Simulated scan of single mutants.
Amino acid sequence: MISAQQASAIVLALHEGVISDGRPERFVIQSCELSADGRYWVVRCNTEDCVVHGKTEYCYVGVNAHLVDVGTGAHEVVASCFSVDEYLQDKADLQAAAGKLYVLVPSFTRDDKAALINLRQKLACSYPDSFALLAETGRQWLTGKRRYLADCQRVLATEGIATAIELQADPQGATPIGPETWHIDAVLKAIRKSRQPEEPGR
């Protein structure tokens, strides 16, 4: 097992040779702790001027943390736009998907009249469009990172729209989403984009 000291040394070695204002920049470790799952050392470092002397103008930005695998010593960088938990969750979800894609689908059918009417009202669309969204070819609404879809699922649940997250090999018609779908208007807009004409005979 890689120790905290070894993990810190791996990260510091990555910063050797950095030049700032014509002089070598010295980096120091801010913190080194195990991730919640115990698989990685979460190492944060920055310049000595920033960490030790509090000179924030010498702070290097763009990196949230470095991850060092406790078993292999392999290194990964978590960008500042992600939390470590989000990064590790995305990594685990991607591995679990095994090449498939996460898709948000309705967990009700057109036979549920109350749910159908609610869907039509919330989307402000016609009955044919609502039917299309519940048909086999139209029920693949949204696709993206699982945690983004889980956020959409929670938002839709507050509006009485029940959904499920599935893994599918080829989610045709599903609208790709990102972190912008954190509120109901954005989610409903994305679902409207996924509408497809219903297949004849359905």
Rank of each mutant, 00 (worst) to 15 (best):
S80N: 03
S126K: 08
L119V: 07
T47R: 07
E76A: 04
P106L: 11
A74Y: 13
A114L: 04
N46P: 00
D49A: 14
K91L: 07
D69N: 11
C50L: 11
A135G: 14
L116I: 04
H53R: 12
L116R: 12
T137H: 11
L104G: 08
V77Q: 03
E86S: 11
W41Y: 01
E57D: 15
C125H: 09
D93N: 00
K91T: 06
R120H: 01
L94C: 08
R44A: 09
V105K: 13
P128N: 07
D111V: 00
Y60P: 02
L119I: 06
A115T: 00
V52C: 10
V105W: 05
V51S: 00
T109G: 10
G54T: 03
A96D: 15
Q89W: 08
L133N: 03
R120W: 03
A98T: 02
A124L: 12
I117V: 10
P128G: 07
N64H: 07
T72E: 06
Y87H: 13
A79R: 06
L88R: 07
P128M: 08
L101K: 14
L123C: 06
V105G: 07
V63Y: 11
V42G: 04
C50T: 07
T47I: 01
V51I: 03
D90A: 00
C59V: 06
K113R: 14
T109N: 13
S80E: 04
A92W: 13
N46M: 02
A97H: 09
V70T: 14
T56C: 15
A132C: 06
G99T: 05
V51E: 03
D85E: 15
P128S: 09
C45P: 04
V51C: 02
C59L: 06
L104T: 04
C81P: 03
K55S: 03
R110S: 10
S80P: 00
R110K: 12
Y58P: 04
K100C: 09
Q121K: 11
Y127L: 15
A135F: 06
E48N: 08
A92F: 12
V68S: 02
H75K: 00
Q121H: 12
V61A: 10
G62E: 08
C50M: 12
V78G: 08
N46K: 04
T137R: 15
A115S: 05
L134E: 09
K122Y: 06
G71V: 05
F82I: 01
S80H: 01
F108D: 00
S80F: 00
F108V: 01
A74F: 12
E76R: 11
A124Q: 14
A92T: 08
Y60A: 07
L116A: 13
Y102W: 09
S130W: 14
L134P: 10
G62C: 05
V105Y: 07
L134H: 08
C59G: 11
D129I: 10
T56N: 15
V70K: 13
A132S: 15
Y60L: 14
L119S: 09
S107L: 05
P128C: 05
N46W: 00
L123H: 10
V77T: 10
T109I: 05
G54A: 13
V43L: 01
E76T: 04
V68M: 01
Q89G: 08
V43N: 06
G54Y: 14
A114P: 02
A74D: 14
V68K: 02
A96L: 12
R110H: 12
L119C: 09
D129R: 13
D111C: 03
